[in-house]
Design a protein around this nucleic acid. Sequence first.
DNA 1: AGCCAGCGATCAGGTTCCATGATCGATATC
DNA 2: GATATCGATCATGGAACCTGATCGCTGGCT
Lengths: 318, 318
Amino acid sequence: MEPDRWLGVELRHLAALQAIAEEGSFGRAARRLGYTQSAVSQQIATLERIVGERLLERPGGPRPVSLTEAGRLLLRHAEAIVARLDAARADMEALSTGAAGTLRVGTYQSVGKRLLPALLRRFRDAWPDVEIRLTESSNDEELLELVERGELDLAFVIYPLVDGPFEVRQLMRDPYVLVVPADSPLAERHRPVSVREVAELPLIGFRQCRSLVQVQSYFRGRGLELDVVFQSDDNGTVQGLVGAGVGSALVPRLTMDEHEERTVMLELEPRVPPRLIGIAWHRDRYRSPASRAFVETAAELAAELEAAANSAAAPAAA
Amino acid sequence: MEPDRWLGVELRHLAALQAIAEEGSFGRAARRLGYTQSAVSQQIATLERIVGERLLERPGGPRPVSLTEAGRLLLRHAEAIVARLDAARADMEALSTGAAGTLRVGTYQSVGKRLLPALLRRFRDAWPDVEIRLTESSNDEELLELVERGELDLAFVIYPLVDGPFEVRQLMRDPYVLVVPADSPLAERHRPVSVREVAELPLIGFRQCRSLVQVQSYFRGRGLELDVVFQSDDNGTVQGLVGAGVGSALVPRLTMDEHEERTVMLELEPRVPPRLIGIAWHRDRYRSPASRAFVETAAELAAELEAAANSAAAPAAA
DNA sequence: AGCCAGCGATCAGGTTCCATGATCGATATC
DNA sequence: GATATCGATCATGGAACCTGATCGCTGGCT
C-alpha cells in the first residue's frame, strides 16, 4: 500500500465518518455537515477505496448504518487526528492573538474548590482578554490523555505522572489530614493522631483517587491496613458523612472545607508523605504567553496558599 | 475562525510542508512528492489561506526557504497528525490480516461463569492483540437487540432465537438437572428423579429465564405443573438457597457450581429436552478473522466441556 | 400480495478544483 | 550586464466534487 494513497484521506472524509457514526444514517449526517446524501455516499466510497476496507454496514431499508470493526478502528484515529487539528488551530490562534484567545485547562475537584477561584481572579486581572475554558474530571490521568490528544492546553495533575509527552511544573504539597467529627474524643485532644490509631478507625474515602492508593501503600509499608468502609467521589459528601459521625476520613487537606464546623482536621504522626500537585502541558505544543503566565500565576498562588496553610498549622504542631 | 475551514486542511498539504521544511526548497520538495514546483506552491498557498498565517519565508533567489514561527508550530502538529495516519494504516493492515482489533461479545451469567473464562484464555493465546469487550445481560433477547443494532459483534444465545437478521452457531446442549440439598433423601438415592416427583417439590428458579419457561411448557405437556416458590437472578443465590434447604432447583447444569458440596445434581427421568446454547452474529455485517476464530474457539471448547460433562455423568446413569 | 416510506448507490451534468507547463519578477553570483 | 535559481502567477485541460434525479432493496402497513 502506497503512503501517498493514504495522504489522499481527507479530514472532511473523517468528519463525515464521524457524523455518520453518530447519526446512524447518511442522510442525517449529510444534513448536519451541509451536503446532500449522495455527496456523503461518494465521500465514504472514496474513503473506503483509499483505506481498502468497508467502514460501514448498510443493512438497507430504515435500519441504521453502523461501523464495521475497520470503521471503529479508523474512527478512533480520526477522532485523535481531528482533535490534534483543533489543537493546531488553538495554537495558531494563540500565536496570532498573543494577549487574547482561549486557554483550555483541566482540573479536578479539590483544585477547583480551593486554588482555582483565586487563580482565575488573579489571572483575569492580568489577562482580561484570555478566556479560560475548564474541564473537570475526577481522574487526573484522564486529563493527561486530553493533554496528549491536544484537547487541553494545561491540566492540574498529581505526582507521579504517567509516562507521556508532558512537561510539568510542581505547584504545591498537599498534606494528608485526618478529618474527624468535631464532637469526637480525637477532636478534643487537639494534637496529632498516630498512624496506628488511624488504622483502627472506620474511614470514609474517595472512590477514584490515586491519593488513597498512595496512603494505603504507605500504611501497608508500616504493617497497617486502612479500614475504608465507604467511598464517594464527592468532597462534600465525604466531609458531610464525617460530620454526621459515620466515620473519619484520611484525605488531602485541599479536598476539605476548613470552615466546616462539624468536622476538625488533625495532623498525623508521623506525617504521611504529602501528595504533590502540579500543572502539566504537552511538551511539543506551542506555549503561548498566556499559557506561560497562567502557569506562573498558579505557581505564585500555590506558594502563597502553602505558606498560609503552614503558618496556620504551626500552633497546633507546637 | 470557523472549524469547518480547518477541515479543508489536507493531509497532503501537511506532508508538503514537512517536505519543504526538510528540503529547503519548493522544487526539491515537489520532486520528492511527485508534483511540479508550481503545484506545491499552490498547495502551500491554500494551506496558508486556511490557517491565516505565513508558514514559510521565501527570501528569493537561490537561498533556502525556512519556516516561520507559525510554520514551526504547525509542523509539529503536522508531524503528529501524519504519524497518527501512519498508525491508522498499520492498524488497518493488522486488522485485515486479523491480528488486532476489538471484539464486542454479549454474554450472560451461566456462560460467563463456566464457558467464558476458559474461552477467553484460549482465544487470547491465539490472538493476543485482539481486545475482547464483554457486555453481560440476564436476558439474551436484549443481547440480540444489541447485535442487531451493531453494538455487539457476537452474543451468546439460547435457542430458539427471536426473528431477526441473525446467524447462529450452536455450541452445546446444556441438560437440565435437579439440584437438591446434599443431605436430602433424594440426594442419598443416587439415581434419577422422575418428572412426577419433581412436580411435587417446592422449586427455586431463575427470574428472567426463557429456560424456565421451556421446562414449564414441557411439564404442562405431561399434565404436570411446577411449583416455583422463589425466584432469583443470581446463580449463586439459587444454589445457596438449595444448599440451605429452602427448596430444590430445576435448572440447566451450566448454571450450577458442580464443586458446591452442600448440593447434589440429579438427572431426570425421562430426560427434559436440554437447552441449546449458541453464539450469534448479524448476518449482514463483516465478519473479521478474529470474529470467526472466536466462534470456532467457542465451538471447540463447548464440545470439550460437553464431552467432559457427559463422561462425568455416565456412571450416575448406569 | 400490493403499496408506500425510507435508505443508500449510481448516474448525468454543471461547476470547481488541481496539476502541468510556460512565463515573469526577484535575488545572488560572476 | 548576463546568467542561474527560485517562487508566484497564469492559461488550460482533465479530473473531482457536488446536486438533483432515479433505481433497487428493505421493512412496515393494509
